[in-house]
Each structure stands twice: as C-alpha cells, then as structure tokens.
Design a binder for these strands. Structure first.
Length: 574
DNA sequence: GCCGTTTTCGGCCCGACTGTTTTCAGTCG
C-alpha cells in the first residue's frame, strides 16, 4: 500500500511550495490531494491514471506524479523542492505562531533553520531587528517553542470525552449560558483529539469568555476575544471555547464541528446555489449585510436549505458524505442500543481483573442477550494464557454459568494466538469445543508484510476461527501497526465469512475507520468488541461503535447486533 | 493544481484574533 507514503510526499510538497511563496491555490490543491489519497480505500498502485483523475480534486498533474511515484518510488519535483530548503526549516513550521511567511523571513535574514537556532537567536534579542517581528511576536515564538514540545501529543478519544464532560458541566452552569455542546474532532469521534472544542450560546458572550479564561483549571490563556477563547488546561491540552448568539447556534455548531474539509465543501455547495455559509448562518450572496439568514438556528435547517439530508458528525470528513446526502443515500448508522452482545472479553483467569460471574453480571446489566467470555491462549505467557488443561476446566465453569444465567446466553470463547508460522495456539479438537474463536497476532510484529499477511490468511482458512481481533496490532501513540495487505485479508474474510473485529480499547480502535469501511465495502462481516479486561471496560463498546459509525457501518453490517436466535443461525452456518 | 448548465481562463470558503500596522498581513481552525 503506497497511499500513505504518497500522501506524505504531496503534503510536504504543499509545505515546500508554501515556503516558496507559490500561489496559495496551488498549495491548497496539493494539501487537498494529500488528504484525499490518505483515506483512499483503493491502492493507487492498482489504479490507472484515468481512475485517479475521475476523483474530484485529482487532475492530470497529481495523477502523473502518482504514476511516477508508484513506478520509481519518488517524485522528482519533490526532491528538487527539498534541495531548496534545509530539513530543519520544516520542523520550524510546527512551532505555534510560526507559519511559512515568518519562517522564511527567519531563514533568509538570520539563517535560522532549526528550533535550536531559533531559541538562541531569540535569547540574543536578534529577532526584533526583522520587519514585522515586535517584542510580542518574539515572546509568542519562544513560548510556542516550549509549547510545541509539550502539546504535540494528541489525547485518546476516551480520555478526551471524560475531560469534556467536566468542562461542559462548568460552562453550562455559567450565568447567561443557554446551551453548550462539544464540537470539533471529539464530536466527530476521531480516534485521537488534538484539542477540546466547546460551543456555547449565551445572552452576554463577553462575560462568559472572561469568566472561562479565569477558571482554576486554566493554566495559560493563549487568546481571548469577546466571542472566542483559547486556553491551555492543567494537563497541557488546549481547549477552545466559542460563544455565539442562540439564533445562529446551528450554523456555529456546524462550523465548529468541522471537519475543515467538510466545511469547505459545504461552502462551495452554498456558493453554487448563490448562497454563502459562515458560522453566523446561511445567507444569499446578494444579502451583503447578512441581514436575513435563510437558516442557522439548527444544523438540520442549514443542511435542509442546502438540499441535503442531515449528516451525522462522524461522517463529516469530506469522504463522499455530501454527494451521498444529496442523493438521499446516507447510511442508517449503527447505534450502541443496537448491540446485543460481544465476542471478545477476558476474566482474571488470564490477564483480566474481574471474575467470570462479575463480567457476566456486567454484560447483563448492559441489556445484552448473549456474551462470549474468552481468555488468552497458552503461548501468551505474559498474560497468563490458558494451557489446554486449564481451558478444559474453564469450559466446565462456563457451561455451569450458562445454566445459571437464563436471561443472558453465556458462550465459551478464546482469544487464540496466531503463531509465528501461521498455526493456531490450540489443536483443532479443542477449538471445536468453543462457541467462538477469536484469532489474534501477538508476536512477530517485525515480520515482513507478506509473512504476517500469510499468517492471518491461513488462520482465516481454519473453519473454527470466527473472528480476527485487532488486525493491525497498533497502540495509538505507542506502537505502529505492523505491515499487512488489507486487500488480500478482506477478500479472504469475505470468502470464508470470517469477521474482522473493531476493537474498542482506547489505545487500539483497531480496525480503524478507513479499514473498517473497506471491510464493509468488500462484503466481509464486522464485529464490534470491547476486549474488556474488567467490568468497567464493557463501556469501550461505545468507542467501537463510534469507529463503526465513522466507517459508514449500519446495523446489518455488524454481527453483534444479531439477536441470540440470529447468532445461533450464523454459528450453525459456519 | 483543479475545475467548468455562467467559463478552457479566471476563479478558487470564511471569519477571529494578534501584532504592528495607519489599513493590513500572518496565523489558525
């Protein structure tokens, strides 16, 4: 899969062209193309130039470069551009407050091409000899240097949601606040969140923004105006609060939720209709003073006036949702209330912390109809994986639990390692006795793509294997995914009817949204699992469902929306 | 660089905040 690499090349070209002071629209075209390629479900290697050019935003220029990249592994113009600037200049652009114009000034006049040189020059007071660099800018950049080191880490969605909960309570309790909602990538359910965005409607905006910037949890105020505040929280997470009039809350929520690309596409659509859209509402272009909004109180109103179905926030990434909405063919996204059970959970027999009885009790209180409990297999020693003798004992315990719990069907399961050579960690006659077998890769992460792919493919060929867990093996912010061929795996999963898991652990969220959508489009079954290691972690189902929604997944696409009789039928058919 | 029931040339989303500026450029989302 060359797509991520080529996307990175395009993105860097955009930055370099920007440094060259190229036409901003040319720069934007490269940025846009990079974003498109990054989430393209099809491998560019397998696409013709015509295929590529049929995608909106990709023309002859980019298609030619894609062809060059696939063929030679590089793009000549990219290398030529790189020669013009030293490597460190690109890292300067990551400093908050430093964009291409100022970075170029620093480089041309003071030969500054790294954060270290910048810090030194600032300390020597050499910055303010430059035109446009006053004392304040200098201060801002020095602060930004430290800040970029501290805040470069994105927060996991799970953590961000719980932080947001607290902030919302505070904002909603402020005098004059009518309404407050989370916005930004958190509302869209992205796997990680760069900052926390809150939108609120209030009668007197300036008192809210003032009050907010003085809250005890605010460590530093980055910017404060009458309607917009940016602060750093105690944990170095950035939080933006925007205060608007209740009459335009919908337009503002739309704008503040993003994504940026979705908003741009919406505004372009508005223009085509002779309208203009901003956070203040939808207006006629002829209404210069924006005196009479056509829509703005709710998001639904704005979409409707643009001739669109309401688009759920999880889909707002400009990945075809606007066209689908215009043609009234948006998916009916799965919801957490549709979930009837879960395939992949652990108990204290291996590396969980709660007993089988407690896990079942927790599953029942979620209203599930069935629940599969499985621990790790013998090879995973670090997690106290079960040898065959212990597994057999556990099977007896499970059938006892199944007898005791009439209102929830307790199923026997195991998370079985796919060994380095592709064999499974238990013999077939033992696997046969389990209701659900979940196959996982927990070792050999550094094997070449072909070998890991082969292991997973051969596991799927085993008729006892029902589901493959956390396909990529990634841990967000800690471990990169190993290399595997997603197309081959999806094809095999569709043929063998093996489900691919959407794992709800906050660090995994694996499959990711792009892969999960490709699985759906490829006709293979999906299962949303908590991979819970404690009672509380059954809550991770909400994360798995969020990923599924971002992947355009409907109720019918997820195995664990099946009722117990439906699931029985599926198990029998395997 | 991309795109076209106004156009193959001339457009290309929209606004807030900041700082250094006497009217606006740069950055950010």
């Amino acid at each position: 899969m060359q797509n991520p690499l080529f996307a990175a090349v395009l993105s860097e070209m955009a930055t370099l062209l920007d440094l060259e002071n190229e036409n901003v629209f040319r720069v934007r075209a490269y940025q846009r193309a990079a974003q498109i390629i990054e989430v393209l479900p099809k491998d560019i290697e397998a696409m013709s130039k015509e295929d590529l050019m049929s995608i909106e935003g990709i023309g002859k220029g980019i298609a030619d470069k894609a062809y060059e990249f696939v063929k030679t592994g590089r793009v000549k113009e990219h290398l030529d551009l790189r020669k013009k600037f030293p490597e460190g200049l690109l890292s300067l652009l990551k400093v908050p407050g430093l964009g291409p114009r100022r970075a170029r000034l620093l480089y041309d006049n003071l030969a500054i091409d790294s954060p270290e040189k910048l810090r030194l020059a600032a300390a020597q007071g050499r910055l303010n000899q430059l035109r446009g660099f006053g004392k304040k800018i200098e201060e801002k950049i020095v602060k930004g240097l430290t800040l970029s080191e501290e805040t470069s880490k994105r927060i996991l969605l799970w953590e961000a949601r719980s932080l947001m909960q607290g902030m919302l309570e505070v904002v909603r309790g402020m005098p004059g606040v009518v309404q407050a909602e989370p916005a930004g990538s958190l509302r869209r359910g992205k796997e990680t969140v760069g900052d926390l965005d809150i939108l609120c409607a209030a009668s007197r905006p300036e008192t809210v923004s003032k009050k907010f910037s003085a809250m005890p949890f605010v460590k530093q105020v980055l910017a404060v105006g009458p309607t917009k505040v940016s602060v750093l929280l105690a944990n170095n997470a950035q939080c933006d609060l925007r205060v608007v009039d209740p009459a335009c809350f919908g337009a503002a929520l739309l704008y503040f939720t993003g994504s940026k690309e979705h908003n741009v596409a919406l505004r372009e659509r508005a223009q085509g209709l002779g309208l203009t859209l901003s956070e203040y509402g939808l207006f006629r272009l002829s209404d210069r003073k924006q005196a009479k909004p056509l829509a703005g109180k709710t998001e639904e109103d704005v979409y409707k006036r643009l001739g669109l179905q309401f688009i759920p926030p999880e889909l707002r990434e400009n990945r075809g949702e606007i066209a689908a909405s215009a043609e009234k063919r948006l998916p009916d996204l799965v919801e957490e209330k549709d979930i009837k059970g879960c395939f992949h959970n652990h108990t204290l027999e291996s590396d969980g912390v709660d007993s089988l009885e407690d896990m079942v009790k927790a599953a029942r209180s979620k209203g599930w109809e069935w629940y599969a409990v499985g621990d790790h297999s013998q090879s995973l020693k670090i997690a106290k994986g079960l040898e065959p003798s212990r597994l057999k004992k556990k099977l007896a315990k499970l059938s006892e639990a199944a007898k005791k719990n009439k209102d929830i069907r307790v199923l026997s399961a195991s998370e079985v390692d796919i060994l380095n050579d592709g064999r499974l960690d238990y013999e077939d006659d033992l696997l046969k006795r389990l209701d659900i077998v979940v196959g996982s890769v927990h070792s050999g992460f550094h094997q070449p793509e072909e070998q890991i792919t082969k292991r997973i493919l051969s596991a799927m060929e085993n008729p006892h294997v029902d589901c493959i867990a956390h396909l990529s093996g990634r841990l967000l912010g800690k471990r990169e995914p190993y290399k595997f061929n997603i197309d081959k795996i999806i094809e095999r999963a569709a043929r063998t009817g093996t489900a691919l898991e959407i794992n709800g652990q906050p660090e995994r969220q694996d499959l990711n949204d792009v892969h999960a959508r490709a699985v759906k489009d490829g006709g293979a079954p999906l299962a949303a699992n908590t991979d819970a290691h404690s009672r509380d972690q059954l809550g991770f189902m909400s994360l798995a469902v969020t990923v599924a929604r971002r992947a355009w997944v409907e109720k019918k696409d997820l195995l664990n929306t099946k009722t117990w009789p439906e699931l029985q039928e599926w198990l029998k058919s395997r």
